[in-house]
Structures are given as C-alpha cells and as structure tokens.
Design a protein around this nucleic acid. Structure first.
Lengths: 246, 246
DNA sequence: CCAAAAGTGTTGGGAATACACCCATGC
DNA sequence: GCATGGGTGTATTCCCAACACTTTTGG
C-alpha cells in the first residue's frame, strides 16, 4: 500500500486539466526560539547535501498520512530537542511558493516553538543555536520564516503572557527583563516590566527569594508566571467595548 | 469527473515507511466579509450534494500544480465575486485535521478577504451573504474558520488601518462608525473614531462634503483612507522602544 | 424656531514611561 | 561605610472614553 508515490495517470478527462496532479508534499517546520546569553537564538541544522549544501535549515520534515500539522512539527522537533522542553507551540503561516524548494514542490507550514531559558537540550552534532540578529546563510525561504516568527513573538510579548514560554519556572524581575530585552531586541525597564505584568496578573511573587547575590546586592523576589498557556491579556489597543467584563 | 485519486502503486521501497504516500490534496478557502445593512456578513454557498448536503460552505477549491495558495484563493473566489472588489486578502491559518473532510483527507488554508461596503457583486444562485452573528448550519470546520477570521479582523481593526478594505472610497465619519460597529460587534463612538483615526493618519478629510441630509442635519465631511494597503499603525501595546522613529 | 446630524472642546481616567529614592545584602 | 543590585513611590505623559456644547443644515 505505502511505498508509492502517487503516480499521475490520465484515467479520465476532466473539466480542469491536471485535476489528478493536485497532490502535494507538505512539511512542518519549527522555528525554535530560546534566549541564551542575553540574545534570542533559533535552532538550525547545517545541511550536508545539496541543495543548499552547507547552509542552515529549520528543523522539520514531511507530514505523514493521518497526522496533523502540529503533531508533525512536534514529531520532527523531537529529533532535536526534548518535546517537554517546548513550552509553547503555535502555527505561524504556510508557504506555498512553487519553487521554494528547487528540487520539487513542497508546501511548508511553519510553527513557532519556544523553549524556556534555563533548558539545555542536548543537540545532534549538526544542530546548533544561532542568534536571530546574526543569521547564517539559510536554505530555502527559512531566513524569511525566522524573521516572520520573530515578528509574531515580538507582537505577542506586548499583549499576551507568552513570556511564560521563554522564562524559567521561577525568576527575578531582572532575569525576566533580560529575557524580554533579548526577545524584543531593545532594552526594557525592569521597573515597568514588573508593574505591567503584575497589574495584569501575568506574573506573581512566590514566597522564595533569590540567593543573596554574588558580589553584593539585595536578594530579589522570585516570581513565576500565573498561567502556563497562552492568554491574551491586553486585547484592545483602541475601540474597547463599553463594559468588557471577563 | 475530476477527483481521481492518485493511484498508489508499489514502485520502490524506502527507508521511511509511507514516505511516498505523503502527498495531500490542499484547498484554499476564502472567508469573504462585507458589511451590509449594519451587520458583518460572510459569503457562503449552499451544498447541493453530500457530504453536508444543504449545509453552507466557504468558497474555495483545490490548489493547482504551480499555483500559490494566495493565487488559488483568488482564483476560486473569482467564481463568486469580481476579484477587483476584494480590497484585502491575507492568509489566516491552515487546518490539517485528517477527518475534517469525511470523504478524504484534504488540508485547507483559509484566507481573509474583505469587500468594501458599497460593492454589490452579483452572485451565483447558490451563493448568498449571511450575518456572522447568525451563521447557518455550516459544512466541515467552516463555522470555526469563520469565527477565527472574525477574531483576526476584530483585532486588526484596533491596531492597523484594515478598515480601508471595508469602507467605500469616501465616507462620512458616521458611515465609518457603522462599519466599525458592525465589524467589531459592539457600538463605537463616532467622535472618538474620528479623532483616533485622524491622529494616526489613517483617514484624511477630502475637499468634498456629503449632500446635506435627508431630513435635516449638517452636511458631513467626506473622508478617505490615506493608504489602501495594510499598515500597522499601533504596534506597541506595551514595552515600546525608547525612540521609535519611522 | 426647532429638530437632526456633524463636529469640536473639555474633562477625566487609566496605563505606560521616567526618575528619584529607599531597602537589603556582601565586602 | 560603601558598592551593588532590588524594589517602591511619584510625577509626567500620552491616549482614549465620555459628555457637553457649538455648528450647519432642513422644515
């Protein structure tokens, strides 16, 4: 049954030419982000063979029969990182340029995957983290997909609790500020970050304190995110409805 | 008829089982919105045959070889509305539930398509507008796609100029308020709408005035949108960078 | 003059930024 | 005590919502 490429045979004539050829391969790609050393990084693997030999690619692979795209993304990412380390996964967009792969047509649905800062997944030898501000030579349309994923992340940081998927279990406000700064790409004030996120109920203080300090300094309150799934906390930039009760 | 499935024949064995069966049909679906009679409407056609006989469907159809998804959406929508009447088209999301179509697996990429208020496209007999607040019985996952499209529209109205694709060429602030109210689903103040959109440079006054009034009233300034393609006008709900120059 | 619709002035509130100042720890 | 980093208090700014009031038309 399996092991066959659908052979296009002209069985019947139809009103639309090529009606039988309307079958496509489809891949799921994961844009895996993690903040490391104060910079937002993306997981890429280096191609050993043409096309784009030596260039860097997003992890991913073909959609299987009976499989959903999200599950496919998870399955292929499992080859690179432990799946429980992916704290958030969401669909980004589907690329359909017929020549995005020079060999053969293949559609690609990209997913945004976020790994909390402290996780240190062990990676296959061909796979490493790259700062998104300094992407290496990328294969296919992957560089543009990474930029698009970054835009999505940037936007959602300001009106959702998506930071939960980038921050470790507990953290100080300073650490969270570094995470936000790295993801947004510009400096963020710890003072305001703390106030905004606590007022919105996005983060909450824990009983614990951070261990004093390496070279002095007041011990910091440890915070955690109140929820560990995506919540839109700031839906209306303008034109709010009269009484928006929860 | 068309719909000839690719005949699977055992040609070669490969390292990954089912590697050659990973071919899928793919359809582009259009969620066409227009504000009519003060309500947001969506274009649906009624199915004459099973499955979901009698239920209402989104316009769309199969992706062709060599065709991009956006072009495919346009091509299939052309059967329902004049393409120039679609002022904005953007990709929404891709659905991949293996059983979303009970007959055979088919992936679907949904597009949001907006038609300005005054256009009155002539429709095929099986196709009509339906208020999104009172959707009829819908086929497949189409009802949920419509809801998702509406959410996207709602969100973008507050931080982009996307209203340009729902409003006619020129309009009074009152008319624009009705458009926004319909799309958002709750009342909007004309006073504030005018101020917000002019301050952001989204709309601008034209030299013209609306004809006096039917039963009295001051003639209104005619406005137009400054741009006719999507512009994000209010990108930062919080955490704005220090100096965000254009 | 009155009704109707448009447009402007003004006020108030909420939220975000900026900055000053106080707190707690190591040395 | 002093340096270092954490946290709070407060002022300022900006933006939006609400409402009052003025403007311009038709009858």
């Amino acid at each position: 049954m399996s092991h066959v490429r659908p052979v296009t045979m002209c069985l019947v004539a139809t009103e639309e030419s090529n009606a039988e050829a309307n079958y496509f391969r489809h891949e799921a790609l994961g844009v895996v982000f993690q903040v490391r050393d104060g910079r937002l990084n993306v997981l890429l693997w280096q191609r050993a063979e043409p096309p784009f030999e030596g260039a860097w690619s997003l992890p991913g692979g073909l959609l299987d029969p009976g499989e959903r795209l999200g599950a496919s993304a998870s399955r292929h990412l499992a080859a690179k990182v432990d799946i429980p380390e992916i704290a958030h996964l969401e669909q980004l967009e589907t690329r359909s340029d017929p020549v995005r792969d020079p060999r053969d047509r293949i559609l690609a649905t990209a997913y945004l995957a976020l790994v909390p800062a402290r996780a240190r997944p062990c990676l296959p030898p061909d796979t490493t983290w790259h700062p998104v501000d300094a992407l290496p030579d990328c294969a296919f349309d992957h560089a543009s997909i990474v930029r698009s994923a970054r835009e999505r992340l940037r936007a959602k940081l300001s009106y959702t609790n998506i930071g939960f998927a980038l921050a470790p279990e507990t953290f100080t406000v300073s650490q969270l500020r570094d995470t936000y700064s790295a993801a947004l790409g510009y400096p963020v004030s710890a003072t305001n970050l703390q106030r905004i996120l606590t007022r919105r109920g996005v983060i909450e203080a824990t009983p614990g304190l951070s261990r004093p300090a390496p070279s002095g300094g007041r011990p910091a309150t440890l915070y955690r995110f109140a929820a560990s799934e995506l919540v839109v906390t700031n839906p209306f930039a303008a034109f709010r409805p009269r009484a928006a009760e929860a």
